[in-house]
Simulated assay, not measured.
Amino acid sequence: MKKNKSENIPVDFSILNDMPTDFKIDRITREAGFQMKTSHVHPFYDITYLINGECTCFVNHSIYKLSKGDLIIIPPGDIHRSTFHGKIPVERYVLSFREEELNWIRSLIGDEIVSKSLKTGVISIPSKRRDYIEALLNKLLFESEGQDILSPAFIQAGLLELLLFMIRCQQYENNVYKEIDVDNQLMQEIATYIYEHYDKKITLDDMAERFHISRSYLSKKFKQATGFGFKEYLVNVRIKNACRLLLETNHSITDIAFECGFNDSNYFGDAFRRIKGIAPNKYRRNKEAI
């Protein structure tokens, strides 16, 4: 485990090999109104817990509103972006770990429970248990700074305790699941349509007509609700699926570009490098590093 310090700077995990350790935790403060400049898609789990403030998290095609005491789970490969609103700064813990860190807990309680519990979703931690989880997260942060040779063991034990606590909340507490943001239902329907039909021709004009709203309203409201521009989100969804095809098939890069809705392989290559920080062919060759 390498030393990590709490810091008030952007945490961008969108590029390969961006987390050199198996575990990372930060305590981060954002001013109200801050918006992430880049979307996030990374090959490890993210858990964010809000200590104070409010924010909106857009994950894949779902919009969640988070407030004090809420915890969101974001599995590897999920597109997400957060927008921080309200009138006070947002303070949160951001914890990241790789899939391999789940081997221990899977051996204890079984793969089915772990897989079911660590899907995308928001848990509202009961108020009577928030002191406990915040103390646990603070302990993980303390040990991540490399106190001594026992710190890696304390981190592993602490992560196991955190995950078991989350699963217990899901299994035995009432009303811990936060619903998707119903105030933005139309934008969620539009995002879901894009997410499921990314391989088809999709334009802003076509979507405005399909959902019976104006082009300008769709563009403005989609950005407000998700943090993504319409075209930006469409391209990110297509790149996400292109990554999957690059790793799971032997299809040519040109064929993958067309399969994912791009009508120009050169544009696909440029978009891929801009979002992933690496060319498609190099991404495919670096499969073991992902």
Rank of each mutant, 00 (worst) to 15 (best):
C55G: 07
C55K: 13
N17R: 09
V41T: 13
H80R: 02
V90N: 14
V59D: 03
I73Q: 00
M36H: 09
D18P: 11
T21H: 15
G53M: 01
P20N: 07
G77W: 12
S39T: 04
H61M: 09
Y64D: 00
E91T: 07
M19S: 08
V59T: 05
R81C: 09
I79Y: 09
S39M: 06
V59S: 03
T83L: 13
T56F: 02
D26H: 08
L66S: 04
P20L: 11
I51P: 10
I79A: 03
K87P: 12
I88V: 09
E91V: 04
T21L: 15
V41S: 14
V90F: 06
F34L: 11
L71P: 06
L95W: 04
P75Y: 05
N52V: 08
G33N: 05
D78A: 15
D78N: 13
T48F: 14
P76H: 05
V90K: 06
I74Y: 06
S62N: 11
C57K: 12
I72V: 00
M36F: 06
I73K: 00
P75H: 08
Y49M: 10
G86M: 03
I88P: 08
L16H: 05
I63L: 01
F58I: 02
I25F: 00
C57A: 15
L66N: 09
T29S: 10
H61Q: 11
S39F: 04
R81D: 09
R30A: 10
K68I: 05
N17K: 05
L95C: 02
H42L: 02
I88T: 13
I63C: 01
V41W: 14
H61V: 12
Q35D: 12
C55S: 14
P89N: 01
G33V: 04
M36D: 11
V90C: 11
E54N: 10
M36E: 06
N60C: 09
S96N: 15
I72S: 01
K65W: 06
S62D: 11
G53F: 01
Y93F: 08
R27N: 05
L50I: 06
I73H: 02
M19C: 06
Y49S: 14
F34G: 04
I63D: 00
F58A: 07
T29A: 13
V59A: 03
F34E: 15
R27Y: 02
N17M: 03
H80L: 02
P75F: 04
S96M: 14
H85L: 10
V59N: 03
I73P: 00
P76D: 02
K37R: 10
T21K: 15
S62C: 15
R81P: 12
L66P: 00
S67H: 04
T38M: 07
A32I: 01
T83A: 09
T21G: 10
S67W: 05
K65F: 06
N52C: 11
P20F: 05
G53E: 05
Y64C: 00
I47M: 02
R81E: 08
C57Y: 15
S39I: 07
S39H: 02
F44P: 04
T83V: 10
S62F: 13
H61K: 08
P89A: 00
T56E: 01
V59Y: 06
D78H: 15
P43K: 04
T83S: 14
K24D: 00
H40L: 09
G69K: 02
C57D: 15
A32D: 03
S67A: 04
F58P: 07
H85P: 10
L95K: 07
L50P: 03
P20D: 01
E91H: 01
N60A: 08
